[in-house]
Design a protein around this nucleic acid. Structure first.
Length: 271
DNA sequence: AATCGCGCCTGACGGC
DNA sequence: TGCCGTCAGGCGCGAT
């Protein structure tokens, strides 16, 4: 669900509303996320002040006085700032109660999300320490991808979705970026030229920036913090468009399965 | 080290 | 209407 543009959209929303806020308490309704929420979280968080809201890959980092709350939205996670008295709905698993009588509410129907507290540098936490490069930073280049891909036989689509290589690219933007770069999603990563990687790096940056500018892509679950859907779904060129004409050549968009995930592409325009 | 497949969950949808 | 199978935007883990 949320890939980099969606998580960054939520980060900006949260940054506005949470920075400088004191956490009065925590309500845990369902701790049974895939990685169970620690029962000691209320004790750790009560009295902390949120100093900054950062993002690393698809993780959100709420920097507090003596530690950091690490959040991941999985496929269906939502974060919203609401009046604390708002009745909880189904899948509202956790609230951070804020000093201004509002709360940060975490809702996640599939419970693939993560909420955990760390007192170490969060970027050194085992979940974050080995993450790859941020694609919107200047050091993300075709040369970097080309070098990392040397000798690897994995499909290029899986390669760019590998968070240990480059972060933030999920199933939607992988298909979109490969279409823009004219690369067939099943091509072995180690067999693409530097030139083609340069085009791909540019395409990844372009599609992520455009999606971010539109507030993300909403197909079903994703919502911006204010509850509104994103707007990028109308700009998708191949994702979810199986059978529809390619916007470049008119041939029907193909759908296939690569690494147990749907991949969308144009047989003529992507080689 | 790299790759593959599985499992964690709920909900929506299509076919019958 | 209901039942069943399939699929969904992620990711960590163990086996190979």
């Amino acid at each position: 669900m949320p890939e980099l543009p969606e998580v960054e959209t939520i980060r900006r929303y949260l940054e506005q509303r949470l920075t400088g806020q004191r956490i009065e308490g925590v309500t845990i309704r369902h701790a049974s996320l895939r990685r169970p929420v620690s029962r000691t979280l209320p004790k750790k968080l009560a009295g902390q002040t949120i100093q900054a809201v950062e993002r690393r890959a698809k993780y959100l980092l709420l920097r507090c006085g003596t530690g950091t709350l690490i959040l991941h939205l999985g496929m269906t996670g939502r974060l919203t700032v609401l009046p604390a008295a708002t009745p909880a709905l189904k899948h509202d698993h956790l609230d951070l109660l804020l000093a201004d009588k509002k709360c940060l509410r975490f809702n996640d129907s599939r419970r693939f999300g993560t909420v955990l507290w760390t007192t170490q540098d969060p970027r050194l936490h085992p979940l974050l320490a080995d993450l790859g490069i941020e694609p919107l930073k200047p050091d993300f280049t075709g040369a970097y991808l080309h070098q990392r891909a040397r000798g690897r036989i994995v499909a290029i689509k899986n390669f760019i979705m590998n968070q240990h290589v480059v972060v933030g690219v999920g199933n939607i933007y992988a298909s979109e970026a490969l279409f823009q770069a004219g690369i067939h999603p099943a091509r072995p990563a180690g067999k693409l030229s530097l030139q083609r990687y340069e085009r791909l790096a540019g395409a990844i940056q372009q599609v992520l920036e455009a999606a971010l500018a539109a507030g993300g892509t909403t197909l079903r679950d994703y919502r911006q913090g204010d509850g509104n859907p994103g707007g990028f779904q109308v700009q998708l060129l191949v994702y979810g468009r199986a059978g529809e004409p390619c916007t470049t050549c008119g041939r029907p968009v193909q759908q296939t399965r690569i690494g147990q995930r749907s991949a969308y592409f144009c047989r003529k325009c992507q080689r």
